[in-house]
């Protein structure tokens, strides 16, 4: 029943790979001007086109490119390339990415169009302006689809929608399926890009403006670009194929925060880290769907045992990670 973490695919402002995400305390890498007044944690410079065939590259938007690359890192890190045919996949995703140039062009004009004519005007402009394949770059389940196509991951494939809670719930279900033996090997994670106005627009009321501050000293989010994928498998099966477990994932719990009081209180616990804890979001920025998978991965790397997380609107999560000793 013991579930091992045998591979990590991590990308954030801290860099790429295990080592970049092992150093504590990590100095935050910030971009305070590119999307001012909203500070963000930018992605470490990556040449994704070196990792993704050109034909595929064109059919994806940024989060899919980032996510497929991180998924590939995790598969390689686990040495699990021979198992992709039976590998199950769980992805947490947001709403995809839009053609922000087209949006801005239409928004610059739309108020000059009489309200009664706007529907037909938009139909024409969208029909002329949208790139057909953009839809596929945008659909939430197409990160999973792209991972299957690029890395030949051919087991079951599920995508959960919904911010931080989706990432945590994906990890919980992935863990449960490996633990009960219905999945031989599981790839689970998410990717999110902060450096896009369409993504920032979606979270506008919850974003920190102007100066960056540590999570303990602010009430709002500082988003970050990043991706986190984990490979999970049963410890005995991992050892039998000669894999080297990084850590054991003992338990993942998720639940909704009771919200009977109505409006979420962003000054409450979600953004307050207990003393002595590693505040992952201080280092990587807030990675939305990828936030909890990243936190669990970094806890494993740091030898920490308990991981907690919260959604900015919904959900609280906890995981227990244990050091693996051969």
């Amino acid at each position: 029943m013991t579930v091992a973490i045998t591979g990590l695919g991590l990308i954030s402002c801290l860099g790429e790979g295990r080592e970049a995400h092992s150093a504590w305390p990590a100095e935050p890498v910030l971009d305070e001007t590119g999307f001012a007044p909203f500070p963000i944690h930018p992605l470490t410079p990556l040449k994704l086109e070196d990792h993704i065939p050109r034909r595929e590259f064109r059919q994806m938007e940024g989060w899919q490119r980032l996510g497929t690359h991180a998924a590939g890192l995790a598969i390689a890190d686990a040495g699990a390339g021979a198992l992709v045919g039976q590998m199950d996949l769980m992805v947490a995703a947001g709403g995809g990415e839009r053609d922000t140039t087209l949006d801005a062009t239409l928004l610059a004009e739309i108020l000059t169009v009489a309200p009664s004519d706007r529907e037909a005007w938009l139909n024409r402009k969208l029909g002329e302006g949208l790139r057909p394949t953009l839809f596929l770059a945008q659909l939430s389940n197409l990160l999973a689809g792209s991972i299957s196509i690029l890395h030949n991951v051919a087991g079951s494939s599920r995508t959960f929608l919904g911010e931080e809670a989706a990432g945590a719930e994906a990890l919980r279900v992935a863990h449960a399926r490996v633990a009960d033996g219905t999945s031989r090997i599981m790839l689970v994670g998410a990717a999110w890009i902060a450096a896009r106005w369409d993504n920032l627009l979606t979270y506008a009321p919850w974003l920190q403006q102007n100066a960056w501050a540590p999570t303990a000293e602010r009430e709002k989010l500082v988003p970050g670009s990043g991706a986190a994928f984990l490979v999970l498998e049963k410890l005995d099966a991992a050892l039998a194929r000669g894999a080297r477990p990084l850590a054991l994932l003992e338990e993942v719990r998720t639940d909704m925060v009771p919200l009977d009081t109505g409006a979420p209180d962003v000054s409450a616990a979600p953004f307050q880290a207990p003393a002595g804890a590693l505040a992952v979001a201080d280092a990587t920025g807030h990675l939305m769907e990828a936030a909890f998978p990243m936190a669990v991965a970094m806890a494993a790397l740091a030898g920490k045992q308990h991981v907690t997380g919260f959604g900015h609107r919904h959900g609280h999560f906890a995981a227990t990670v244990k050091e693996y000793r051969a």
Binding site: A93, G94, G95, L139, S140, N141, A144, S157, R158, T159, F160, L161, G162, E163, A165, A166, A168, E169, R172, V173, L201, T202, Y203, A204, P205, T254, D255, M256, L259, R313, H314, G315
Partner: peptide, 30 residues
């Protein structure tokens, strides 16, 4: 206005309506 962009809000609304347990699984596999 951006509440409409709350990606899984319909699942949250329905999960509250029925008092189900845990995180509502808002599933998208097209």
């Amino acid at each position: 206005q951006v509440a409409g962009g709350e990606l899984f809000s319909p699942a949250v609304v329905l999960a509250r309506r029925y008092g189900t347990r845990g995180i509502p699984q808002a599933v998208t596999t097209a």
